[in-house]
Design a protein around this nucleic acid. Structure first.
Length: 563
RNA sequence: UGGGGGAUCGUCUAAUGGUAGGACAUCAGACUCUGGAUCUGAGUGUCUAGGUUCAAAUCCUAGUCCCCCAGCCA
């Protein structure tokens, strides 16, 4: 997939910084990054951007990238997510080798560091309630007030902190705070909380061992420091936290990585908030975290997205500090590009309409040769049965054709792919006037699809033999949201009003018999409609296929223009 | 209105004082046994106003707009 054969540097400001750091010898020329997910939900395409960035940078500069679970808040985290996240990263194609870490592995060490800070007079135990802390903090424009507990002696702080650790105080009754500056214009520096007491829940890894847990600000820099990370890449909202990140490491006088912030990924027609994503899962709006409409990696995997396409997408969108919303069509472009090259073609009729060939012998069956993938001759050919009664797609026939519709219509001749030219002689309707059958004649001289007299067909239709085809279920997924920005909703409502009520449509379809033996995960292009993947819900006798992405469709565009 | 960031085609992203380029999308054409793919071409952009300079997206000045921060979340 690498197409960076050019010498042009895949440059972005982060790689530029790293290059400078290597040249200046800041970290001894080392590059060591990390991807630090919190195990409180599933990974989505936004995380993929961070994963690719961190792992790709490490590789590019001959460095390493750690996988580290930032499990500092047992009230929100569960082990279930740890395994799901590991699976997703592997699926994306990245390998952390033996460098799987957990913030909880460092709890003891962090505690020691906290004691050091207390001994330096840089941290104190505070008895203020959450509400009081908030009041004391001040506002954006007014300075905060110092806590009355701010000047406890070091001995008292040490004793109290030890007791916090022993679980002697009720949850929420005390915190350990850094002693910095209550008047700082950066609210993060107004004596931030380092430890809080959590006793009600057990940690998924340390169990009931701890009654105090470190906050992000206190923990994250330490984790990076302990792992000797060189470049700690994070999203823009942590920019305000960098002074604190630096302050802790400076006070402790320990190894000090460089934090660099970049803009997180946003995409049109979807949401990236774990909370809202969880909400639509919980409400049953989608069928779980791996629903193919979800922007989660699990969802995209089930939707049939090739991981290579996602990686290429992440590479191409670049890294910058500008807030941006990427057009989802760019992702779909890379999915199509990949699938066009890699997936075998099959003929499947999504909306079956009977086509009867009047002059074709009743009992006859022919085996016609079809190319598996015109983009890859090595995939060879296969045989497809042809007979008197076929199915074509409803959309390929119009009794009174509109302008620019050049598919089948009464009196018209078109080609059936790999088969014959057929000419429409009329239709059969039911009592309600609905067309239930299209009649035609075929030209035996055009077998295989070419007319010896040089006659051309403007289009080629796909078809299946009614006598031989099998039933499959197609799940046609569309966008989950109607709005480019689902978070754009009127006052008093919420993002769910932007949900697309027709984001899924399930159809019983007619497929060529070769599709009988498929396995979940197998991908195909159903000719003239789209790319499909076999879903794990498939049952014996009824394979289920998810639409990955449709083919580009000129006629669809024209149709829209005409209406 | 305190502090921290950011503004380049419709959308992303390059250009680091020297021809504003690429991708997606759009439009037009060629080709085609997928109205697919492929190929060719086209249009569209430096937030504004001044200034420095032979030369400014880039440097300076003054504005404008957008994002983030008042969790014992991360």
């Amino acid at each position: 997939m690498e197409n960076h054969n050019n010498s042009e540097k895949p440059s972005d400001f982060i790689r530029e910084f790293i290059k400078q750091d290597i040249e200046s010898g800041r970290f001894g020329g080392r590059v060591h990054t990390r991807f630090p997910p919190e195990p409180n939900g599933y990974l989505h395409i936004g995380h993929a951007k961070a994963i690719c960035l961190n792992f790709d940078i490490a590789k590019q500069f001959n460095g390493k990238c750690n996988l580290r679970f930032d499990d500092t808040n047992p009230t929100k985290e569960e082990y279930e997510y740890v395994e799901a996240i590991k699976q997703d990263i592997k699926w994306l194609g990245y390998d952390w080798e033996d460098r799987l870490f957990f913030a909880s592995d460092y709890f003891e060490q962090m505690y020691e560091y906290a004691v050091q800070l207390i001994k330096k007079g840089k941290a104190y135990v505070c008895d203020l309630t959450p509400k009081e802390i908030k009041q004391y903090r001040g506002t954006l424009t007014e300075p905060g007030k110092e806590s009355p507990y701010r000047n406890r002696t070091i001995e008292e702080n040490l004793l109290l902190f030890e007791k916090m650790k022993q679980g002697e105080f009720p949850e929420g009754s005390k915190t350990l705070r850094a002693k910095i500056d209550m008047t700082s214009s950066n609210l993060n520096m107004r004596d931030p909380v380092m430890y809080r007491i959590i006793k009600k829940v057990r940690h998924h890894r340390t169990g009931g061992k701890w009654f105090i847990y470190p906050t992000y600000d206190w923990a994250h820099g330490l984790e990076d420091s302990i792992e000797k990370i060189t470049h700690s890449l994070c999203s823009l909202e942590y920019e305000n936290h960098r002074p604190l990140y630096d302050w802790f490491l400076d006070q402790l006088d320990i190894y000090h990585p460089r934090q660099i912030e970049f803009a997180r990924l946003n995409m049109t027609y979807t949401i990236m908030s774990k909370r809202y994503l969880g909400e639509i899962v919980k409400k049953g709006i989608v069928n779980g975290w791996d629903d193919p409409r979800m922007p989660t990696l699990a969802g995209m995997r089930r939707a049939g997205y090739p991981p290579e396409a996602i990686r290429k997408f992440c590479d191409r969108i670049g890294v910058a500090k500008t807030d941006s919303i990427i057009d989802i069509e760019l992702l779909e472009h890379f999915v199509r590009e990949n699938l066009n090259k890699t997936s075998q073609r099959r003929m499947v009729v999504l909306k079956p309409l009977k086509l009867v060939i009047e002059n074709y012998p009743e009992k006859e069956t022919e085996q016609l040769t079809a190319i598996n993938n015109p983009e890859n001759p090595d995939d060879g050919t296969r045989k497809i049965p042809f007979s008197k009664v076929l199915y074509i797609d409803e959309d390929d026939f119009m009794e009174s054709p509109k302008e620019k519709f050049y598919r089948l219509a009464p009196g018209r001749e078109v080609r059936l792919r790999y088969a014959y030219f057929v000419k429409c002689t009329g239709v059969v309707k039911d009592d309600s006037g609905r067309i239930i059958e299209v009649r035609c004649t075929y030209d035996p001289a055009t077998r295989g699809g070419d007319a010896p007299d040089g006659r051309k067909s403007k289009v080629t239709l796909h078809w299946v033999s009614a006598y031989h085809c099998i039933d499959i279920e197609s799940r046609l997924y569309g966008r989950l949201f109607l709005n480019k920005n689902p978070m754009d909703f009127p006052e008093g409502s919420d993002f769910t009003i932007n949900l697309n009520p027709e984001s899924i449509s399930i159809k019983r379809c007619k497929a060529e018999p070769s599709l009988k033996d498929v396995k979940p995960g197998d991908r195909f292009q159903f000719e003239r409609s789209g790319y499909f993947v076999c879903d794990p819900d498939s049952k014996e006798g009824l394979p289920v296929f998810n639409l990955i992405v449709s083919l580009k469709d000129e006629w669809e565009k024209i149709k829209k223009f005409l209406t």
